[in-house]
Design a protein around this nucleic acid. Structure first.
Lengths: 133, 133, 133, 133
DNA sequence: GTGGTCTAGACCACC
DNA sequence: GTGGTCTAGACCACC
């Protein structure tokens, strides 16, 4: 299974599920049209309550990552434009600024951070590449 | 004042204070040896509960960003190596991976994200430059 | 075919069928006496469960939009007065009030909403007009 | 209290709470900055579970109708632009088209419906007017 | 005190 | 079988 959750993390469990699914999509582990496990089945598999999984699925549907087909199941949606795209790009930039602050306190220069970012992107690409091959 | 807090933000107030101080340091607005306002004074100025400010100062001390000198006050610490540096760099990398996932769902390519990162670094440098001049 | 259904819609499928038939009547695409396809045939055509179609037909019969003649088939009914007319007009008014609330939150004035309503009626009339010509 | 819920309604309870608050805002019964009752207090008052009220508040926050101030309470937000405005206006238009279909089956002409709409807007305005006087 | 999260278990509509 | 809703009751972070 391409999904795991750490109950000790400060991050809410339902949100870890949300991010796990989004990461699987971004990695190409699941693709448009693929079926997700039923709420209660995933709950059992991951020893979570079905409400927790249901909440994650609802959030994913709201973000248009998945589509719920009544009585039949839940599927990965086609990717499309988001109405709140600008807000989210702004949040991305804000996150980058926080990283610059953090880097300073770790005595990394801006260029060190940029290098780390490039390295992380490369590692990400290599991992994705493994999927396709 | 180089510090501000948004009570409506989902980010805990004490953490906003922590990050605000760390950002001021990174920007060069305050430097090693500068004195911070006493807990109660800062609390009054920013209309916060003094417990909130105290908690922020404790966290900043734990991170060795500030030093509390009993009976004298609180001061910006000299920057030095951190014992938990590796953990924090790992956290930074994890954050970058989250950004890659988010970018995918905003239909930005890895290169788009890298470009945004470079642009953000440049903007940050320009702002810092203004301080020094 | 003048009927289509979106399985991903939050609206129940059987209700989409009900509304689809009622819309076709309102548009003049089908008229009193026209025959509807048998339940199983419509189910096959639209790749729906026959139970779903049957439920829609039952609802349409209850609303006296269609008439089921045993052994002969299903037909569009003559329009006539409804016993529950008052309830349904009340429901219509309630829906309009909900629209007024929604409009407020979209920063549309009552007059904006009225204008939108008028435009929608005009568009509807134009579409109907195309049918008659 | 300007809020009530019908447990027999097919509409989910949490959604009735959401709409109740939005209606109160649209009616001017509550205004920007007003405090809402705490989750558990409202739950007790309305004999609902606190989870149900919490869910309603979360939905209202997501729609930017209210703002949650950590540890202090929940307040009516200033009205501002919504990122999903277009989608919602489209939904409004779709609702109007459904009303046109329904009107046909109630043997109301388009003009009858328009008149009903105008009357409903007028009634709404009169009710709002009472608040200010 | 304030809202947020989670499990447990029941019930429901829809397909 | 499928997801959605609700109550009950516990625990938690934050202010």
């Amino acid at each position: 299974m391409w999904l795991s959750v750490d109950p000790r993390s400060p991050k809410p469990v339902y949100q870890q599920v949300v991010e796990g699914v989004k990461e699987a999509v971004a990695r190409g582990l699941v693709a448009c049209g693929d079926r997700l496990p039923p709420v209660r089945e995933l709950a059992t598999t991951m020893t979570l309550n079905h409400n927790t999984v249901a909440r994650a699925y609802q959030e994913l549907e709201r973000e248009r990552v998945i589509e719920v087909v009544r009585g039949r199941g839940t599927f990965i949606a086609a990717s499309g434009p988001r109405p709140d795209r600008e807000d989210r790009v702004r949040a991305l930039t804000a996150g980058m600024r926080e990283m610059l602050v953090e880097a300073h306190h770790l005595q990394m220069s801006d260029d060190d951070l940029l290098a780390l970012f490039r390295a992380t992107v490369d590692a990400w690409r290599r991992e994705r590449g493994l999927v396709g091959s």
